[in-house]
């Protein structure tokens, strides 16, 4: 893992440089929004999470120091925590725990143009930790080490979550014809 590509920008934000603030928003907002959108499955909530994530970035930028984990990984961790706060709030009147078992019932075939909603529904039906692993590695393109660091699990545990999540998605979205 080389030098952090965001380090200089973070330092300038800490010094109160407005141009650095705009550059950071342009660089990170699409990633944070994509993460929150896929974790929560709700556009409005994802925008709220994105705004709250940046509030935390501004608050901590001046004190942030590179200690092995990249700034981008830290931003993902912050956004994920905010997503989990919202997921817990949604379920707290039902149960205190987030489900670990996915509902793998196949989703109905999509009408043309409706595939995106079908994938979104499938992502919401798998266990949140599996979804988190898939979103980080597949959609956010974090390396396995960065994703494991953001999730605070081992690489082996990450691979297990990824495989279980993909199997569940395969059953819902592709069916058994995924096997040759």
């Amino acid at each position: 893992m080389g030098a952090d590509p965001d380090e200089e920008l973070v330092r300038r934000i800490g010094a109160g440089d407005p141009a650095a603030v705009q550059a950071m928003v342009a660089r990170k907002l699409p990633r944070v929004l994509g993460l929150a959108r896929r974790m929560l499955g709700d556009a409005a909530e994802a925008e709220d999470v994105a705004q709250e994530t940046f509030v935390r970035i501004w608050r901590h930028a001046s004190g942030w120091r590179w200690k092995g984990a990249r700034f981008d990984t830290w931003v993902h961790r912050v956004a994920l925590n905010l997503c989990y706060d919202r997921l817990r709030r949604r379920r707290e009147w039902v149960t205190d725990e987030l489900p670990e078992v996915a509902d793998e019932t196949p989703l109905p075939d999509a009408l043309p143009g409706d595939e995106e909603r079908r994938v979104s529904q499938a992502l919401q039906r798998i266990a949140p930790r599996q979804r988190e692993a898939i979103v980080l590695v597949y959609y956010q393109d974090l390396s396995n080490i960065e994703a494991a660091s953001a999730m605070r699990v081992s690489v082996d545990a990450l691979e297990s979550l990824l495989a279980r999540g993909r199997r569940a998605l395969q059953a819902m979205l592709v069916g058994d014809d995924g096997d040759d």
Binding site: P18, V21, Q22, V25, A26, L29, P30, L33, G34, R37, R38, A43, E47, A50, Q51, F54, V55, W58, E115, E116, V119, S120, L123, I134, Y138, Y139, R166, L169, Q170, L173, V174, D177, G178
Partner: peptide
């Protein structure tokens, strides 16, 4: 085969309003 389906899930680009709100708050 699964990747091809997962790739259909795209997230729209952030709106100028969201970008503006975050930058204003940041300033």
């Amino acid at each position: 085969r699964l990747d091809a389906v997962l790739d259909r899930h795209r997230v729209e680009a952030p709106s100028p309003a969201l970008y503006g709100a975050i930058v204003a708050r940041a300033t």
